[in-house]
Design a binder for these strands. Structure first.
Lengths: 223, 223
DNA sequence: TTGTCAAATGTCAGCTGCTGACATAATCTC
DNA sequence: GAGATTATGTCAGCAGCTGACATTTGACAA
């Protein structure tokens, strides 16, 4: 009704009591899930336990989340939404890679406040580590990112006025970009540095490496 | 014993009757799984049906495959093994991206014969389409590829004498490369052209696009 | 307020993927 | 051929997930 058609969540700036209540239980479920996952681990936590800790039936949990994995990655989805919006607002003059880069970096602060409306930031940080070390979650996240990448390809193609089926470049660019983002967050996850700032720097650094990494000539400083 | 230490499958060139039998049932299971998946769909097929069609208990199925998904992606894993071996054999003089590229292209023929020892090629082709359209399989495959990419990073770093933790470039390069491969196979899957040759060409074309896709200046031919 | 409608939730039953434990049957070794 | 290994079968059980139907709760109008 607000004009912002959501992905799967209830409308963000909703009006009625009903909508607000829905949003509340959804947030409560995500938070409860993340708290349990970060303490007992993902596989060590049952959906029943999550539901119970919010005093809701298991069936209700599955009405909010397609799967246990989706609950764990709810925040991730939120972030992707913000990023996509940021990309759409980049000036048309920016070349594709720069637009992607700037969208990531510019959206950073918005994102952390948006996250904080749902869960404490440090909980999210700890959750990232869990994701990075849980195969099932890694797989689910990668699937989500693949869907995201499809949307990115469409957007890039639109910006540049290209046919995303005939022209390979948007797909290739986005694939590379996505890979780099994954590499960055993986790197950040391992370093166990719990700051958003550090994460931002990691992403920036990785993006700046795209050029040098692909244009050979690595061995100048090495041997 | 042949020097090719396998990933999880029984040793390829095994000696005893036991080993050969194991390999036979494993192959039979993969083939049965793929045949059922391609006709009834992945979710429309139960593990019991697969096991039954090979006249084996469900429990045995799970002794061969960690999950239903793993059975669907068994061939994929086989291919990755060949690719990894090919990469290790590339001359040390080749710069990283070229080595990756050549490993893919050079290994192509070996792969198709290796596949054919397990399943008919056209069955594999049809299976690729199923993977591309089944969310659970997409996720599982991406996870597998992520693991593969880690191994690739290690190998590239070794070749170049770099520390894969400190130096970002191997990770970034492999991420980009992996993304491109995914883009290529996705593109091939959509075009529904059932030839290996076409697939090879698609991969080659995509790899050659890496440079142009990243170095901006797209709008020369377009508008 | 009250009554009506729609939407959210609870309850229950059931399927499917997957695993541990133990018994049985097949291969290997001598 | 006897005994040690190893693969397989059987059984029981948990956890994720879904459809169907009953029940409650908020929305809206008379």
């Amino acid at each position: 009704m607000t004009g912002i058609t959501a992905t799967a969540q209830p409308a963000p700036g909703a009006s009625g009591l009903r909508e607000r209540k829905k949003q509340r239980t959804r947030d409560a479920l995500t938070r409860a899930a993340m708290e349990l996952f970060t303490t007992r681990g993902f596989e060590g936590t049952t959906v029943d336990e999550i539901a119970e800790s919010v005093e809701v039936s298991q069936r209700t949990f599955f009405r909010y989340f397609q799967s246990k994995e989706h609950a764990a990655l709810a925040v991730e989805e939120l972030i992707e939404g913000h990023f996509m919006a940021a990309l759409r607002e980049r000036p048309a003059a920016e070349p594709p890679l720069e637009a992607l880069r700037n969208a990531v970096l510019s959206t950073w602060d918005d994102v952390s406040t948006a996250i904080h409306e749902v869960v404490p930031l440090d909980l999210y940080m700890r959750m990232c580590q869990v994701v990075e070390t849980t195969p099932a979650l890694l797989a689910a996240r990668m699937r989500g990112q693949a869907e995201m990448e499809q949307r990115l390809v469409a957007e890039i193609a639109r910006r540049e006025g290209l046919d995303p089926v005939l022209d390979l470049r948007p797909r290739v660019l986005v694939a590379a970009f996505g890979g780099v983002i994954r590499a960055a967050s993986g790197h950040w996850g391992k370093c166990a540095d719990d700051s958003v700032e550090q994460m931002r720097r990691s992403v920036e650094e990785h993006i700046n490496t795209i050029g040098p990494a692909l244009t050979g000539g690595w061995r100048a400083p090495g041997a």
